[in-house]
């Protein structure tokens, strides 16, 4: 079997029984939401971005709350 004849790789919804309309609706949502996230990330993500994690931001907030509550 040539490369052109090979079946496409399984799609993300292939193991879940869905009708064509459901599949189309789900992939449409994923495409539009994913595009927004992709564009937002492309404009903002840098290798040296910090903080990487919401845990860090929370830790800062916890320290501030401890000072306020003291």
């Amino acid at each position: 079997m040539s490369k052109d004849q090979a079946p496409p790789p399984p799609g993300p919804l292939d193991r879940i029984p869905v009708d064509p309309a459901e599949r189309r609706a789900a992939t449409d949502i994923a495409r539009s939401v994913g595009a927004l996230v992709s564009a937002g990330a492309a404009a903002r993500m840098t290798v040296d971005e910090t903080p990487w994690s919401l845990h860090t931001l929370r830790a800062e907030g916890a320290a501030r709350a401890a000072e306020d509550g003291a």
Binding site: G11, P12, L13, I16, V18, E22, R23, A25, A26, T27, I29, A30, R31, V33, G34, V37, S38, G40, A41, M45
Partner: peptide, 14 residues
């Protein structure tokens, strides 16, 4: 259902 269709990179970016 749409959750199955997002690329892993998008999730990591989010």
């Amino acid at each position: 259902l749409p959750g199955f269709a997002y690329p892993a990179v998008r999730y990591a970016e989010a």
